[in-house]
Amino acid sequence: MLRPLFALAGLIACASSAAAQDRRPSHCIALAQNTPGMAYVQKAAWADPVEEDAVRITYVDHSVYVIQTAGGLAVATDYNGYLGPEDFVPDVATMNHAHSSHWTPNPDPRIPHVLKGWGDAEGPADHHLDLGEMLVRNVPTDIRQGFGGTEEDGNSIFIFEVAGLCIGHLGHLHHEPNAEQYAALGRLDVVMAPVDGGMTVDIATMQRIVSRLRSSIVLPMHWFSGYSLEQFLEGMAGEFAIDRRIGSSLTVSLRDLPSRPTIVVLQPVVLSGFD
């Protein structure tokens, strides 16, 4: 069950000095149409400073991304306890528990905010974490269990509103969002979408979800072989531009979103001092 979209819940935190900036308002809920832009993205290593009013997104592994801001905030999505040999501590770690590769029972104790995407006896996960420069919120979804069962609210789609952008991570999504959940997501400029074709949703369902979201940038994740990725890309090629990269990071800003929705294929690389 989805709680009211704008309900505030427990994790409203004091920002660190690096994060104590005003957040540029996003159009996540306000707009239904794409924001036109120009050719975008710049090549950037994960350890470089982030440009003002921009966000760097680095594909680390599986469904783990690191999102970094100009003010120094960092988020690790579907955090499983390992980002690489570099001693890098994010400000926020989001987790989902459909599989152990998407969460850890022992997150690094230095991480200030660990957000579990699944519910408990008190109800669904309900996060509204305001860090000044970034707002992190979630939309719960269900997951499958063995023998045909369902765990209600076992996954969360996490949304990160920062630099005027709305960035969504679908997590270990097991079903197409319903109308209420789509409305709660709002307009996603960037979406990380699992394209494994079976462990989450099938390829046709994910193609339908991505088509409906119509995000300016789609980042495929959770692909274990080229086969499912190529299936996904082939089905979307008429509707989205395809941009294949050899690197793991991109930097994007609201002013530079592509005029045509684009699927950007990044290569997963764990964080190290050699990037």
Score class of each variant (00 low, 15 high):
4 P>A: 15
6 F>T: 14
6 F>H: 15
7 A>W: 15
12 I>P: 09
13 A>F: 05
15 A>N: 15
17 S>Q: 13
20 A>K: 11
27 H>E: 12
28 C>Q: 15
35 T>N: 12
40 Y>F: 05
41 V>G: 03
43 K>N: 08
43 K>F: 06
44 A>E: 13
44 A>C: 03
45 A>L: 12
46 W>C: 10
48 D>H: 10
48 D>Y: 09
50 V>Y: 08
54 A>F: 01
54 A>T: 02
59 Y>I: 05
63 S>Y: 00
66 V>E: 11
68 Q>P: 04
69 T>P: 14
76 A>S: 15
76 A>G: 15
76 A>V: 04
77 T>H: 13
78 D>W: 13
79 Y>C: 02
86 E>S: 12
87 D>K: 05
88 F>M: 06
89 V>R: 05
93 A>P: 14
93 A>D: 14
96 N>E: 03
96 N>V: 06
96 N>R: 03
97 H>D: 13
100 S>F: 01
110 R>P: 06
111 I>L: 01
113 H>P: 08
115 L>G: 05
117 G>W: 07
124 P>E: 00
124 P>Q: 00
125 A>D: 01
125 A>V: 00
129 L>E: 00
141 T>H: 10
143 I>L: 05
143 I>M: 09
146 G>D: 14
149 G>M: 13
151 E>C: 10
157 I>K: 05
157 I>S: 09
158 F>I: 06
168 G>Q: 09
168 G>F: 08
174 H>A: 14
176 E>D: 08
180 E>V: 04
180 E>M: 05
185 L>P: 02
186 G>V: 05
188 L>V: 01
188 L>E: 02
191 V>G: 00
193 A>W: 02
197 G>S: 11
202 D>C: 10
205 T>H: 04
207 Q>G: 13
210 V>K: 01
212 R>W: 03
212 R>M: 02
214 R>E: 12
215 S>V: 00
216 S>G: 03
218 V>T: 07
219 L>P: 08
220 P>V: 05
221 M>A: 15
225 S>V: 10
227 Y>S: 08
233 L>W: 07
238 G>W: 01
244 R>G: 07
248 S>A: 11
263 I>S: 03
268 P>M: 07
269 V>L: 13
272 S>C: 09
272 S>I: 08
